[in-house]
Amino acid sequence: MRAARRRAGVEPAARATTIEARLVDVTLGGNPVLRGVDLWVGAGEWVALVGPNGSGKTTLLRALLGEVEATGWLRCGGIDPASPDRRRIARTVALVPQHPVIPPGMTVQDYVLLGRTPHLGFLVTEGARDHEVVGDTLARLDLDGFGHREVATLSGGERQRATLARALAQEPSVLLLDEPTSALDVGHQQQVLELVDSLRREHGLTVLSAMHDLTLASQYAVRLVLLSRGQAVAAGTAREVLTVDALAQHYGARVRVLHDECDGVVVVPVRDHQLPERP
């Protein structure tokens, strides 16, 4: 019942909505990629977008940034993503892309400083305040000693933190994460997600993350939205969304879903031993 109400985009009135999408359609190269997607995320909430490859998770994030043309109603941080004021959007919404482009030779300090871009006018260079924000962010992400290292020489986990630091240096109120942990081992996955969660709690950051790891998604996100073939087919808590049937239907996956003690779920892939062996 709760899930059904959410699917219809009806929000329990208490919280201000920071991300709102109603009946959003996106067509790329003639193919419908998103069809009638509804989504809302309250201020300070963490919502995870889950769904199989090609279900439109990244496209939805890009639509919220105004990087792809979308029809329907979209607001992100109170701004229409179609607004021509790119700098205003970038001061409000920051994206951590799945595969960030690492510019050769650039130091971590300069890389994170790029996050200050939306705060700088055309002829303005970074001032003391910008360097202060960058210094604080580097310290927050345990990158203090890395300022003069080249980003290209960092390990996967360190790079991920550098890109996250760049996004945080934008001082956004909304953080969009596209598969933030796909390149990391399990320990670094937890570190990065814990960090994002503490930032969310301390600074009221609103987080929308596309995630493949369903167990982690259930542990960190307050709610999940399941996308399949460009449509939001389920929304709600992890236990409501991540059911054996839903995962079979939309992922074509055989899984066992275990409920942990604190509202999360553990999704375990299983092999079906009853199937006869192929010759």
Partner: peptide
């Protein structure tokens, strides 16, 4: 020369530069 800083931003590619507020 006046575009030097923006060219630095462009070094992360069009998509990311755009998400940083640059066209």
């Amino acid at each position: 020369l006046l575009h030097a800083r923006l060219l630095d931003v462009m070094s992360v590619g069009d998509a990311e530069a755009s998400s940083l507020g640059v066209r």
